[in-house]
């Protein structure tokens, strides 16, 4: 799994860091910081949920890798 975030469109809602704290964090402005672009298997479900919940839809999960 490969994760990409479009920080320019992030609105800092923090949903991602709440559901997948090992994959996402936020900077001081609340903008998403990707901690791990290639999360391991146990993180996959939480990462997918973060992508689905992101209100700005800026998290892209590529499952093909």
């Amino acid at each position: 799994m490969r994760v990409n975030v479009d920080t320019a469109a992030c609105i800092g809602a923090g949903q991602c860091a709440l559901v997948a704290p090992d994959v996402f964090d936020q900077d001081d402005d609340g903008i998403v910081m990707l901690l791990n672009a290639a999360p391991s298997e146990p993180e996959h479900a939480a990462t997918r949920r973060a992508a689905a919940l992101c209100p700005a839809r800026v998290i892209v999960v590529d499952e093909s890798e």
């Binding site: 800092g12 923090g14 709440l18 936020q26 609340g30």
Partner: peptide, 10 residues
């Protein structure tokens, strides 16, 4: 205060 908000929310 995004970070603190998230901590409180958790």
């Amino acid at each position: 205060m995004p970070r603190e908000f998230r901590q409180e929310r958790a």
